Amino acid sequence: MNLERPAADPGRSRPSEEHARAPSGIVLDEPSTADSRRQPDIRPLWAQVLLYVFIIGPFAAAAVGLWYATTVSGVSVVDAVLFVVFYAVTGHGVTIGYHRLFTHRSFTATRPLRIGLAIAGSMALEGSVICWVADHRKHHAFSDADGDPHSPWRYGASPWALTKGLWWSHTGWLFDRHKTFTSRYAPDLLADADLVRVDRLFPVWALSSVALPGLLGWALSGFTWHGAWTALLWAGLVRIFLIHHVTFSINSVCHVVGSRPYASRDRATNVWPLAMLSMGESWHNYHHADPTSARHGAEPGQVDSSAAIIRLFERLGWATRVRWPDPTRLRARRRVP
């Protein structure tokens, strides 16, 4: 485990031009002077209220679920299966779709796959696809430096400052009403009519993410309201809670503790206990060393279900131009002992 102050003050470092570019050539540095003179893009009040509902609601549901499972009826097989299916579909929608495809262009996908991944990612309730990508590209442009939306080193490296920083990077930053400029960080997605449509329909996908498990639980339990309620609880709300906090842990835990076998300009780390739940995202050190790689768990034995599914898509002809790591790239990015 590695817990130490960054080599340089993250609040004063600036990203290099190499790291400030997306694969498409989009410049991912701070907003231009013209951008800075514009009125800040503020999240409307209704959206801010819904954000609180999306974050606090699943958290409360997890507490209710724990009480219900231990004192009332446990967890049925139907609920468990629906939980796993919805977790896998929506979680991989984020890791494969939102992250590796739309943010970093680690591969090229057919139109149906692009749309399907965007919808699946939306159903994780981590935000609409264009806003999510803009935030994440800005994170990579300023990772652990001034301008990073969610660095745990935001307040410094003392124990109290790092405690505040971990809270900020894990959840606190989400409630900042200032939005990332999508026109600056995701112009390619704004030019994609399919993704703009999916983005605008985010409320529909959010409602479906909760309603579908309930409907399936109702049908699979013999059309009982109890079956609908428990499926909505476990495969809907508790599943969203777990996906949220696993993803949030990549922003927080995976920039503070863990191993750093590869050279990156920030504090991104590998945290192996999260690998399965995060679907390979917690091999975060290699990801920051080689952001466009379609595989994050690049070493033998490193679980990365997202990469395995991308490999399947490639074999089916649905994914092309996949950027796989190779021995030369791995050696070039490995830290010198």
Results as ranks from 00 to 15, higher is better:
M1N: 10
N2T: 11
P6R: 02
R12W: 02
S16F: 04
E18K: 15
I26S: 06
I26G: 07
L28I: 13
S32H: 13
D35I: 00
R43Y: 01
W46G: 02
F59G: 11
V64M: 08
V64S: 03
L66C: 03
A69L: 05
T71A: 12
V72G: 00
S76C: 04
V78G: 05
V85R: 09
T90Q: 13
T90M: 10
R100S: 07
T103V: 13
S106T: 09
T110G: 14
G116M: 01
I130F: 11
C131K: 15
V133D: 03
H136T: 04
P152I: 01
A157V: 01
L166F: 07
D176M: 02
R177F: 03
R177Y: 05
S183W: 13
Y185E: 08
L190A: 02
V196W: 08
V196Q: 14
D199G: 00
S208W: 12
S209P: 03
A219L: 12
L232A: 14
W234P: 01
W234V: 03
A235H: 05
A235W: 04
T247H: 11
I250N: 08
H255N: 10
V256Y: 02
Y262Q: 07
S278W: 11
S282F: 05
H284R: 12
P291T: 10
R295H: 04
E299P: 00
P300N: 14
S306H: 08
A307T: 07
A307M: 10
I309T: 14
R311S: 14
L312K: 06
A319F: 05
V322I: 06
P327T: 05
L330N: 10
R334Q: 11
R334N: 02
P337R: 15
P337F: 06
